[in-house]
Design a protein around this nucleic acid. Structure first.
Lengths: 127, 127, 127, 127
DNA sequence: GTGGTCTAGACCACG
DNA sequence: GTGGTCTAGACCACA
């Protein structure tokens, strides 16, 4: 059972990818833990199995999971897993920062926003 | 002549929109300054005029520029312009922060990244 | 028109991937050259467009080509392209060598085989 | 006890086949030596007995082993054994070479790689 | 017309 | 039952 909700206009397979990636990096999916079968996730989310398959394939190719045909898919035990996700998040942060700069946002404002969000997370986070 | 480079997988009209928006918010395009003609921009960037037209239309609809039929398009003098862009950048920042949290990036790291990027910008930035 | 023939039991999308990769690394497809449209290749080879799409997607993700939605797919001008293919070929060579060792093939034999194949290529190669 | 490790995406029964084949051709399994029982190998490797059975069946059908019903399986004493494996390894080498050529790898590089791998094997090889 | 996404449904080898 | 591949056909935003 994957606690993922599809919403917004982003491609479903991408939302699935990010969803699983977060479950892994936040530790809610442990290394070597078995992921639900492609068909099962598809049924649960009311989505075509091919779409789930696509997400799983990209997760494997990114080293976040490994799959043994006819056995199932499993969370990759590699150290790379978590760090790959962190690296991606950091990359997005840098883009957002560069955006902010050219939009005239000051560093102080950014830090204020960071403080606010992190304190929100401490109080109401669901991790 | 617009100093905008198209790159990445985002829709061209969107890149154009953001490009012009940044030129405005950073002051490189002054209030009431005339924008290059649609056909001209299209030729310069090797892009379909329809695409440029779409970007201009959205810029106007967002209040960042105004157009005088048969005369051209001009940068809006309204105060709303810059602040609208700032608000959007801040919204994206918040999303990126939420992402970073669930990927296990600490607040300290985020601040470090912010310091780095802002100092890069001071020294070699093209803003 | 892509000079690729499908044969054997390997996945079609993989044969396509390798076929295009070789056309690029051998220079028969020049940097920034436009690749035939997904649907066109599909028709030419009597294959489903989705299958071609999958191959193109993986080629892009490997940095061998880049695609501009609604415009087409193009050979990547990056230096990485050729070297990525070379690296892959070398990886396969190493596997084959390790195989040969544990099968009792001597280094001298391997070199003999290399000599033979390279001289064949010089005389009858179609590059 | 078979010193074989399963890894990669190849079918398990094929990895088993190759594993045993190598143990034979490298002499670690002597002619007429008894192979571990199917059930035992299955338990040791955490694999379905059917899978091991399939590998054994193909090994027998290839003449590398022979089995005496209700007694067990034994390494074939025939001369063909080692040479069959050698031939297969050589076939794969030729394919890898042809690949390397069309990827622009030079004969000299190939020989360098060969030197490197053979010296690695001499020093730290597990053959 | 282009690449990209998605569905529905099928088949396969493997375990 | 599992992942993986493939087909057929549809829809979309973009250019």
């Amino acid at each position: 059972m994957l606690d993922i909700r599809l919403e917004g206009k982003a491609p479903i397979y991408e939302q699935l990818y990010n969803g699983v990636a977060r479950l892994i990096s936040s530790g809610r999916l442990a290394p070597d833990e078995k992921l639900p079968a492609v068909r099962e996730v598809a049924k649960q989310l009311g989505v075509n199995p091919n779409t789930v398959q696509k997400a799983y394939a990209q997760l494997e190719q990114a080293g976040l999971i490994y799959s043994m045909p006819a056995k199932g898919s499993y969370v990759s035990p590699e150290i790379h897993a978590a760090s790959a996700i962190r690296a991606e998040a950091i990359r997005r942060l840098e883009v957002a920062f560069a955006d902010a700069i050219s939009s005239g946002v000051s560093k102080e404002e950014v830090i204020n926003i960071a403080e606010k969000i992190w304190s929100d997370d401490r109080n109401g986070g669901n991790s």
